[in-house]
Structure formats: structure tokens, C-alpha cells
Design a protein around this nucleic acid. Structure first.
Length: 266
DNA sequence: GGGGTATGAAGAC
DNA sequence: TCTTCCTACCCCA
């Protein structure tokens, strides 16, 4: 259940384990079996992450496109066990094994299709892409900024947690239209995402609480969050804001859970 | 054992 | 805006 930082980490891990290695490729669950058999015993070239999309290149130009969706998950092991659960894709060498479960997408695509997909992926804060085009679109949009932040053509790799946390840190109400933001606010938020997501890639978790608010954050109930990081608002509904003590609010925004502080994000 | 939930996004209306 | 897809895990009985 990843946002962009996780996918970038997975791309690195796959490269570490398999780049330039002849790999076994299989699909124990069967749904990717035909493509897997084409790639089996060929050389793994390189994996790359763009936003939440992962592309794996093989020696003869074949590419696997993977999108984890809500449930997708990679497991990395130093041995190849008997399959447990539904494994869509397994890549292995005698020393390493990567198992993919529950992806939204796992397909063999052509270089031309890679190009088409890449064109639809917007600037990625982790790749330090140029956000100029996204800035222009956001500042002209009558769509709420909370919706725009989830638009992968504008903010590739940003998901529900980074959305909520970036808006909180900027003191911006999620309902505000894109065009109500100033250029400066956009840049501050973009640069903040660059920083937050860089930390996310390094640590493998989402931490957004500034040092001065950590004492309040550490006082919370130990079971309060299960996503692993220290955050201001994500899944803290009804709990006191670390800055103003107001209750964190939750609502539905276009089918996704939205969290914010009604006081700090007027 | 069943129901609800989840860090996502495409496609049908 | 709604439905669908994909899987594991948690909570409750």
C-alpha cells in the first residue's frame, strides 16, 4: 500500500538484487504465467520508478509495468520459499527472491507503451522533476487543491498521506481551489513534498512532524497509527492537533479519506 | 468465519 | 459519481 517513496525504494532494491543477473521469472498464481515464461532465464536489466509506477527492463527490450494500487506488495527474501498466498510475479536468483502480490497492474509492455505511459505521469518530487507545468495548471484550476494533489499527472507519487500532511504543513484548507493559491504557496508546498518524500525514501516510512512538535506527537497512544510514521493529521480523526489541540477532522473527498485540522487549515 | 478497511486508479455511466 | 479490480489483515463473533 504504497505512495511514491515506497515504489522508489522497491526499484532500488530490485536493482540491488537483480541488475545484470540472469533471473528466474514465474507466476505461481498463474495470472502472469505466459509473460513470465517469456522472461524466465533472461537478464534483468534495470527497474525504474516514476511516481507510483514501476518499470522493469529486461535484456531484449521487454518491460514489465507494475502498479501496486491499494493492496499490492513486494516481499524480498534471501531464499526462494514454497509459494504462500497468491503470488502474481516472482523474480529470483539462487541468492534472492522478490515476490509480488495483489498489484493493480502487472503486464508485459512494449517500449512504445512505456513511452505512452510515461507521458501521462506528471512531475515526481522524488525525481526532482520540474513542476512548472503542474504549477500553471494548479493555479488556473477551480478544483479543490485536495483533489489536485492526488492527480498523478500533477503530483506523481503523492498519495493520501502526503496529501494530508503537505496541506497541514502549509496551513492550507483542502477545499480551497487551485486558483486561490498563490504561486509562492504552490512552490512552498512542492518544495516541502520534495523534502518529505526524500525523507520517506531514506527511511521507508512517512514522517512529517517537525522537531518542535515531536514531544506532543510522542504523547499519543502507542497504537494510534499503524502506518509506521509520525504524522500530524493522517488517520488522527478526533484526536487533538499537535499545534492547536483542535480535534482533527475527517471527511470523504471524491471517494478518499481526507484528514485536516479545522483550525490550522482555515 | 465473516465483515470492514486500506497509502490507487480505470472505466462505465 | 459509482463500480470494479486486486490481497491481506484486523476486529468481532
Amino acid at each position: 500500500m504504497p505512495e511514491g517513496h515506497v515504489v522508489h525504494r522497491q526499484a532500488r532494491e530490485l536493482n540491488k538484487l537483480f541488475t545484470d543477473r540472469i533471473v528466474e521469472v514465474s507466476s505461481p498464481q498463474g495470472r502472469f504465467a505466459k509473460s513470465a515464461s517469456v522472461l524466465n532465464e533472461t537478464k534483468f536489466a534495470k527497474s525504474r520508478a516514476y511516481g507510483k509506477h514501476l518499470f522493469i527492463n529486461f535484456e531484449h527490450g521487454e518491460v514489465i509495468h507494475i502498479h501496486l494500487g491499494l493492496y499490492g506488495k513486494w516481499t524480498f527474501l534471501n531464499h526462494t520459499p514454497e509459494p504462500v498466498g497468491l503470488i502474481r510475479l516472482q523474480i529470483s536468483t539462487p541468492e534472492s527472491c522478490a515476490q509480488l502480490r495483489g498489484p493493480n497492474a502487472c503486464t508485459l509492455i512494449s517500449p512504445a507503451e512505456v513511452k505512452t505511459m510515461r507521458a501521462k505521469i506528471g512531475p515526481d518530487p522524488i525525481r526532482r522533476d520540474d513542476p512548472s507545468a503542474a504549477r500553471e495548471k494548479v493555479l488556473a484550476s477551480s478544483t479543490p487543491i485536495g483533489v489536485l494533489l492526488m492527480d498523478q499527472t500533477l503530483f506523481a507519487g503523492v498519495g493520501n498521506i502526503y496529501r494530508a500532511e503537505a496541506l497541514f504543513r502549509a496551513g492550507i484548507n483542502p477545499q480551497i481551489q487551485g486558483k486561490e493559491l498563490t504561486s509562492k504557496q504552490f512552490d512552498l508546498m512542492w518544495n516541502d513534498l520534495v523534502e518529505l518524500m526524500k525523507i520517506g525514501v531514506r527511511r521507508g516510512r512517512i514522517d512529517t512532524v517537525r522537531p518542535e512538535h515531536m514531544p506532543q506527537a510522542m504523547k499519543r497512544a502507542p497504537r494510534e497509527d499503524r502506518h509506521g510514521g509520525e504524522v500530524y493529521v493522517y488517520r488522527r480523526t478526533g484526536l487533538p492537533c499537535f499545534i492547536c489541540s483542535s480535534e482533527i477532522a475527517e471527511s470523504d473527498m471524491r471517494g478518499r479519506n481526507l484528514f485536516w485540522c479545522p483550525t490550522c487549515q482555515k
